[in-house]
Amino acid sequence: MNHELNAIIAIAARDVTKLLRDRMRIVFSFMFPFIFIGILGQSLQANVASSLGFNILLFTFVGVLAQTLFQSTASGLISLVTDRDSDFAQELFVAPISRYTILTGKILGESLVSSLLIISILFLGVIMRIPIDWFRLFLILPAGFIACLLGGAFGVLIMSNLSGTQSAQQVFPFVIFPQFFLAGVFNPITKLPPVLYILSRIAPMTYAVDFLRGLYYLGKPEYSKIVLHSPLFNLFIISILFVLYLVLGTYLLVSREKNR
C-alpha cells in the first residue's frame, strides 16, 4: 500500500475510533438537531408554512442535515488545535508524511464521523414523522460527503489561524453560527437585502446546504421556491472553495508551525 495512503487511513481511523469511545459527543449529536428541527422547525411549520407554500419542517430537516455534515467536519479539523495543545500533534508533524496527507486523513476521518452522527437526525425524522421522501434522501446521502469535504477544508483554514484551544473555543462559534442563518439552514433565503445577500454568498455553508437541497428537491414543485442554484453550479463552487481552503490553510498551518 502506498505510504501516504496508509497514513491517511490510519489518521482517519483514529478519528472514528475516538468518536465511538466518546459517548458524550454521540449524545450531544442529538441535541442541536432536536432544537433546530424539533423546536424551531415545528414552530415555523405551524406559523409560516402556509404563506411559504412548502413544508418548512422538511426544508429545515434537509438544511440541518447539510449543516451537521459541514459543521461537524469543520469542528473536527479544528480539534487538531487541541491535539497541538496536548502535544499529540507532534507525533503527526514529525512523521515522514506530507502536511497534505495529515490534513487529508483528518478531513476523511471527520467526514466519516459526521456521516455517523447524522444517524441521530435521520432517527429524529422518523420519530417526528416528517414527510421525507426516504428513497430520494438515501440516494443523495453520498452527496452529503461533499458537504463534509467542504466543511473539513473550511476547518483547515480556520484552524491554521488559531493559536490554541481557548482561541478555538472563542472563534469557532463566531464563524459558524452566523452561517446557520446566512446559509438558510432553517430560514428561506431566496430573497435577501443586498448586504445579507453578499454575506450569504460568501458563507461556504450556503453552497453545502443549497447543494443537498438542490438534489433532494430536484424535479419537485417547490424547487424554484427553495433552491438558489443548480446542483452543478453548487458543486463547481464547492470544488473551488475546497481546493482554495485546503491549499491556503495548509500553507498557513505549515508556516505557523515552523516559522515561529
Binding site: 497514513a7 487511513i9 490510519a10 475510533t17 475516538k18 469511545r21 466518546d22 499529540f88 514529525v94 512523521a95
Partner: peptide
C-alpha cells in the same frame, strides 16, 4: 523523537498508539 511533553493519544490504547505510529512510518499496512 521523545518529546519533552508526552505525545501519546490518550483516547487510544497503548497498542493502538504503536499501531498508529507503524502506519505513519509505513512499517506495516494499517
Amino acid at each position: 523523537i521523545i518529546f519533552q511533553n508526552p505525545s501519546l493519544d490518550p483516547n487510544l490504547t497503548a497498542e493502538e498508539n504503536v499501531r498508529f505510529h507503524a502506519a505513519l512510518y509505513d512499517l506495516y499496512p494499517y
